[in-house]
Design a binder for these strands. Structure first.
Length: 560
RNA sequence: GUGAGCGUAGCUCAGCCGGUAGAGCAUCGGUCUGUGGAACCGAGGGUCGUGGGUUCAAAUCCCAUCGCUCACCCCA
């Protein structure tokens, strides 16, 4: 018996560690993945029937695109988005990370070593800045200049410190030196903290972000490719994952999926809004999303005679009833009064109900737009509930706002949000006068709701399991499998011979519709025995009869 | 960022007055070499989330930590 050295055991332990999906991300496994594909495929079909066409923007963009469209302070941007610096200066980045740990490596020797690193970092990044390989932004210019200043400042101090460190003198000399050191240290502490600040400000590459939503990307692409010169409004849809670094919850993930659509162009006809809503509800209906509710509102536009005036009025009214509100709402009176209307707290409801409503403060044009939209919805037989408390926080949102909620979702029960954003394209650098409306459906939540309701589609699974036995049956089995697959049937062909009983058992467990039996008999006569697994009915068929039978029984069985 | 609940086999869970880790389902094999879903028999699968403490002895008691879930915050 030999004893394993401890290090080996440790290594083995680390290597055996379980990897798991990152918090807030998950695997969509079969059979659920089929449901997802069906859901997204249905969206494509419905949207394309309204002449929407797919756009596939990249999954990451310049951080500032989102920062601008989301409009929140940079702190929230940094906390809730997945951002990183995109560069190929790994060596410099390592140097910088080391330097940012500086404070923990306090001491004369450490300072002098770090100073060496800092000088090296400064020289290298300065060169890259000059050649443009590090972004030539004002921020970078400032940070690099500041760093050189600080190096100038700290160098002599550092030399003194190192001298003192190796000093071997008398006690009185020692005392004086220590005094000098302490004075020097105070100064150095400040300089080091300034260095940290400047180091943080250096960006070695572009800041990029995993998209938290797709509307900004769609608008960016629209502008970048001059799509306003294409005939008519552009009607675009997208399907794919989004990323937000939030605390996971029921129906809320860090990597989540959306299906969305946008209409961009010069026209803001109410009929466009109505068409978008009709399309959305048609889709929900198609996928069997029951118990849904469409909430509708108009938030006017950002002008003194419209929303801005209303917000001021609302704030004034809220201040009057401030003491009847809880802390969160009190804070929002100043930061974002419209958000107070969102409050779910039961004790605040009576107060909120008495607040002025935006519908009474819309300008004439916005009021008319909303009226016409409601006429259009009536024309299309679309039911909705007007909800004056449904709002959006950002300036570029205009007029139509809507949300769809579904059953079975817990506190995050919105499956779709959308509305008009006539100010966004211009905000992102496009020409003025370009309007937009769109929505985004939360796929995770929509599917969760469908699953909870039990209203699941019958999706085609395995069509035929080929139960072959005996060496002579193998060749015909391979051949017929290929033919059936070419015709689009899902076929399972066991790679090894199985006992016949097992074979049928496996066919059953795999959920096959049919077992195709090929044994010595069939191989000899060139026939196949097709057994329907639901009732055990079976027939001996030749190839063409087999194909005909499967075509007629399995074809055209749509999900819903 | 805040709060609560929960971590034992692939899944659902039992065991928790400390004393050799269990069941059902699932998987694999057998009964059963041309007819599936059943039954019976058997097998594999766990450092009881992780680390530390108390103890002769810890899945069980104590502490810490990590993870999951839900809600708050936020919601583009």
């Amino acid at each position: 018996m030999t004893e394993k050295p401890e290090t080996t055991e440790k290594t083995a332990k680390t290597e055996r560690r379980q990897f798991r999906a990152i918090k807030g991300s998950r695997d969509i496994l079969p059979p659920d993945s089929a449901l997802w594909n069906w859901f997204e495929h249905s969206a494509r079909e419905v949207f394309e029937s309204y002449n929407f066409r797919e756009i596939r923007p990249p999954i990451f963009e310049e951080t500032s695109l989102f920062a601008r469209s989301i409009g929140t302070d940079t702190d929230v941007v940094a906390k809730e988005m997945y951002s990183f610096e995109d560069h190929d200066h790994a060596d410099l980045a390592r140097l910088r990370s080391g330097l940012l740990l500086w404070e923990e490596w306090w001491g004369a020797e450490a300072i002098s070593r770090s100073l060496g690193d800092l000088v090296a970092f400064l020289a290298a990044s300065g060169r890259l800045y000059e050649s443009g390989k590090v972004p030539r932004t004002d921020d970078n210019r400032w940070a690099l200049d500041r760093l050189s200043e600080l190096v100038e400042e700290i160098s002599p101090q550092s030399e003194k410190l190192v001298e003192w460190d190796s000093f071997r003198g008398s006690t009185s000399e020692m005392h004086a030196a220590r005094q000098a050191l302490e004075n020097g240290l105070k100064n150095i502490e400040k300089v080091v903290s300034d260095i940290m600040y400047a180091l943080h400000a250096v960006s070695l590459g572009d800041q990029v972000t995993l998209r938290p939503e797709a509307t900004a990307s769609v608008c960016r692409a629209y502008i970048e490719h001059g799509m306003q010169t294409l005939p008519g409004n552009q009607k675009l849809y997208y399907v794919g994952p989004m990323f937000r670094r939030e605390r996971p919850q029921k129906g809320r993930y860090r990597q989540f999926y959306q299906v969305g659509a946008e209409v961009l162009g010069t026209s803001d006809a109410p009929a466009s809004d109505a068409e978008v809503l009709e399309m959305l509800l048609t889709f929900f209906n198609r996928v069997g999303l029951t118990n849904i509710k469409l909430y509708l509102n108009s938030i006017g536009h950002n002008a003194e005679n419209c929303r801005r005036g209303y917000v001021e009025l609302l704030r004034a009214e809220l201040r009057k009833v401030k003491d009847q509100l809880k802390e969160d709402s009190q804070r929002r009176i100043e930061t974002n009064p419209l958000r107070v209307l969102d409050s779910k707290l039961p004790e605040e409801q009576p107060v909120i109900e008495k607040l002025p409503r935006i519908s009474e403060h819309l300008c004439d044009a916005c009021r008319e737009h909303f009226t016409k939209l409601k006429d259009e919805l009536a024309l299309r037989g679309i039911g909705y509930e007007e909800n004056w408390r449904l709002v959006r926080g950002l300036d570029y949102y205009t007029r139509t706002t809507f949300e769809v909620t579904a059953a079975g979702l817990g506190s995050q029960n919105a499956v779709c949000g959308g509305g008009r954003y006539d100010g966004l394209v211009e905000l992102l650098g496009g020409s003025a006068g370009l309007k937009g409306i769109g929505f985004a459906i939360g796929t995770d939540r929509a599917i969760l709701s469908i699953q909870e309701s039990g209203n699941l589609p019958k999706l085609p699974g395995l069509a035929v399991f080929i139960a072959w036995m005996g060496a002579k049956a193998y060749a015909p089995a391979v051949a017929i499998a290929k033919k059936l697959r070419e015709r689009g049937f899902a076929i399972e062909l066991p790679p090894e011979e199985m006992k016949f009983r097992k074979s049928l058992g496996l066919a059953d467990k795999l959920g096959a519709r049919y077992a195709l039996i090929i044994g010595e008999d069939e191989a000899a006569s060139g026939t196949f025995t097709l057994k329907r697994l639901s009732d055990g009915q079976q027939d001996k068929l030749d190839e063409s009869a087999l194909l005909r039978r499967l075509e007629s029984e399995l074809r055209g069985q749509d999900a819903r």
